[in-house]
Computed example of a mutant assay.
Amino acid sequence: MRDTYAETKLSILQAGRRLIAQKGFTGVGLNELLAAADIPKGSFYHYFGSKERYGRELIEQYVAEYLQTLDQSFSAEAHANTTARERLLTYWGYWLETQCCEIAEHKCLVVKLSAEVADLSDDMRMALHTGTEAVIARIAEAIRTGVAEGSLHTVLEPYRTAQMLYQMWLGASLLSKLSRDREALESAMDVSRRVLVAP
């Protein structure tokens, strides 16, 4: 049996995500969200209650999808002929290419919203914080796998290394937005290759 409530809610989230990826959370008015989702104001409040709650659920839905993709990217079963080190560098390479592209909806929503909503909404800030911690944990597990299989140096401390790399890439993505070029992201890629060194 189809869950039409959940499907409609997801459709509204996806419609707003494209807009927010382009303009930011505060840059998108409620009327613009309603028009994009093709729903009346009453329906919006029925599903979300407020624009802030909509923002929180948008982040949670984005993070859930992102973590599924990450799990697939780091899965040894899905990528049987690659090492954990290769899978990690492929992930960072994908980040470099998508954050440099001109298509706003391909860019990381965490990068887009973190600075904007940190002081605006505690609920949205916590959703972003929880999401980034989950991403770092996945990266740390991939590093742990690499150390265990011998594709990464045993000197690496998985969680701290994952945290450092993720923070570096977030910063590089913001700098890339300011400069509108690839230099900061390419530097992050170079450092990642040096950090994730084979024994």
Results as ranks from 00 to 15, higher is better:
residue 101 C to E: 10
residue 94 Y to K: 03
residue 126 M to T: 11
residue 128 L to P: 05
residue 147 V to L: 10
residue 97 E to V: 10
residue 130 T to V: 12
residue 136 I to E: 09
residue 108 C to F: 06
residue 142 A to V: 06
residue 99 Q to F: 03
residue 147 V to H: 08
residue 96 L to T: 06
residue 92 W to F: 15
residue 93 G to R: 03
residue 144 R to Y: 03
residue 107 K to M: 02
residue 108 C to A: 07
residue 99 Q to G: 03
residue 143 I to G: 13
residue 135 V to M: 07
residue 102 E to D: 15
residue 117 V to F: 04
residue 137 A to Y: 04
residue 104 A to M: 02
residue 148 A to V: 12
residue 126 M to I: 11
residue 123 D to F: 02
residue 97 E to L: 13
residue 140 A to H: 08
residue 142 A to F: 04
residue 127 A to T: 05
residue 127 A to S: 09
residue 148 A to G: 12
residue 146 G to S: 15
residue 100 C to T: 07
residue 99 Q to R: 12
residue 108 C to M: 08
residue 129 H to R: 12
residue 100 C to I: 00
residue 121 S to M: 06
residue 94 Y to P: 00
residue 92 W to N: 01
residue 128 L to G: 09
residue 146 G to I: 15
residue 111 V to R: 10
residue 126 M to R: 11
residue 120 L to K: 08
residue 107 K to S: 11
residue 96 L to K: 11
residue 119 D to T: 07
residue 142 A to E: 11
residue 106 H to W: 05
residue 112 K to D: 00
residue 97 E to H: 13
residue 142 A to H: 07
residue 104 A to L: 01
residue 90 T to K: 10
residue 107 K to E: 08
residue 131 G to M: 05
residue 90 T to N: 11
residue 91 Y to G: 00
residue 127 A to V: 04
residue 106 H to I: 00
residue 123 D to W: 06
residue 107 K to Y: 04
residue 108 C to D: 13
residue 123 D to I: 01
residue 112 K to H: 03
residue 103 I to Y: 04
residue 114 S to W: 12
residue 109 L to C: 00
residue 152 L to Y: 14
residue 100 C to W: 00
residue 133 E to V: 08
residue 136 I to R: 13
residue 122 D to S: 10
residue 146 G to N: 15
residue 113 L to E: 02
residue 91 Y to S: 01
residue 147 V to W: 08
residue 92 W to V: 09
residue 128 L to R: 04
residue 146 G to Y: 15
residue 123 D to S: 14
residue 128 L to M: 10
residue 138 R to F: 04
residue 143 I to F: 09
residue 113 L to T: 03
residue 131 G to F: 05
residue 110 V to N: 10
residue 149 E to R: 12
residue 93 G to F: 02
residue 104 A to S: 15
residue 143 I to K: 11
residue 102 E to K: 13
residue 132 T to I: 08
residue 120 L to D: 03
residue 151 S to M: 08
residue 93 G to S: 06
residue 136 I to G: 01
residue 133 E to Y: 03
residue 104 A to Q: 08
residue 152 L to S: 14
residue 103 I to E: 10
residue 95 W to I: 13
residue 133 E to W: 01
residue 134 A to Y: 02
residue 107 K to G: 13
residue 111 V to W: 05
